[in-house]
């Protein structure tokens, strides 16, 4: 199945210059973790920007599956359907 990942501009270079990445995910694996694994396999540096090496989404990175913040859903186990849109956004932080 195919899922579209929408990246912030700051990460576009790590995906070959595009903010929209179509990721093929094995239908057998349909969680956010599976999707991010597939994304990291294609773009390892991009993968490290979104998650640390334990697989946790970084503290100041927000991920939305079809508009819903995964922190309030299933976290890495959040279900991702065929045709879903997964948006990665930097949180309000920094200085």
């Amino acid at each position: 199945m195919t899922v579209q990942v929408v990246l912030p501009g700051a990460l576009a270079d790590l995906a070959g210059g595009t903010r929209h990445v179509d990721v093929e995910v094995d239908p057998g694996g349909s969680t956010l973790a599976d999707l991010l694994d597939a994304l990291a396999a294609r773009h390892p540096t991009l993968g490290r920007r979104i998650r640390d090496e334990t697989g946790r989404v970084r503290r100041f990175v927000n991920v939305y599956v079809d508009g819903e913040d995964v922190r309030w859903q299933g976290g890495p186990g959040t279900a991702v359907r065929d045709g879903a849109t997964v948006q990665v956004l930097p949180s309000v932080a920094g200085g």
């Binding site: 700051a10 990460l11 490290r48 920007r49 979104i50 640390d52 970084r58 100041f60 990175v61 930097p90 949180s91 932080a93 920094g94």
Partner: peptide
């Protein structure tokens, strides 16, 4: 430290 995006 990339700020939002972690250390490297």
């Amino acid at each position: 430290q990339y700020g939002h995006w972690g250390p490297s």
